[in-house]
């Protein structure tokens, strides 16, 4: 564990709490892509099939939290606050993402086993899981400030993981190409968002696309 990785994980936790706060406070999931949240649930379930493998208490508790919270968010969006979800805004085709990631995982993996291919699939899928949300944002052209805080925390978590990998490369000679490439793509997807967040939200303005 190092500073960057711990901070990254905490930003990831924070992003989920901000999302839960947004839904509970406004009693609405408007502006949130159900498809992105569904993809995250798939990511956590397929990645943490090794839940029973002991790495550390931290590792196990975080895995349980990520699986449980992602499913709880699906429950909030699909059942509790269903009326506030507008599917006509959430039109990104996730079938292509799922198919492409599965295909890539079958071809580019470390070991061709069931658990390992699904782990790889989850890494690729996480890289693109934010696309339906960003697509929704670009369609509506604006977002509630708290929703942008959620996206910022999520993007910061990914950016900090890049720093963690650089750190681990120099201190432990840790190399993980699959995670690096997927992580770099994932972080790059946030660049436009970061720019507008910095220009508008941090200066007290509403998040609106130019």
């Amino acid at each position: 564990m190092n500073f960057f990785r711990l901070t990254a994980d905490l930003m990831h936790l924070l992003s989920i709490f901000v999302l839960l706060l947004k839904i509970q406070k406004t009693r609405s999931c408007s502006g949130i892509s159900f498809k992105t949240q569904l993809l995250y649930a798939v990511v956590f379930v397929t990645r943490y099939l090794d839940l029973l493998k002991w790495i550390s208490l931290y590792n196990t508790l975080m895995k349980i939290f990520f699986i449980a919270s992602s499913i709880y968010i699906l429950y909030l969006m699909k059942i509790k606050f269903r009326a506030t979800y507008d599917p006509s805004q959430d039109t990104f085709r996730i079938e292509f993402l799922l198919g492409a990631c599965l295909l890539l995982a079958l071809v580019f993996n470390y070991t061709f086993t069931f658990i390992e291919v699904l782990w790889t699939f989850s890494i690729y899928l996480e890289a693109v899981a934010i696309l339906p949300q960003l697509f929704m944002l670009s369609r509506t052209g604006e977002a509630e400030t708290i929703t942008t805080h959620y996206l910022f925390a999520l993007g910061a978590y990914r950016g900090l993981y890049l720093l963690n990998w650089i750190w681990r490369f120099y201190t432990e000679h840790h190399i993980d190409w699959i995670v690096w490439v997927a992580g770099a793509i994932q972080t790059a997807l946030y660049s436009d968002f970061f720019y507008i967040y910095y220009k508008k939200v941090l200066h007290g303005q509403k998040f609106e696309l130019p």
């Binding site: 990831h12 590792n59 975080m62 895995k63 470390y110 070991t111 390992e116 993980d176 699959i178 995670v179």
Partner: peptide, 10 residues
């Protein structure tokens, strides 16, 4: 090194 043994990141 076998990468499959050290998926220690979340």
């Amino acid at each position: 090194k076998d990468k499959t043994k050290d998926h220690d990141e979340l």
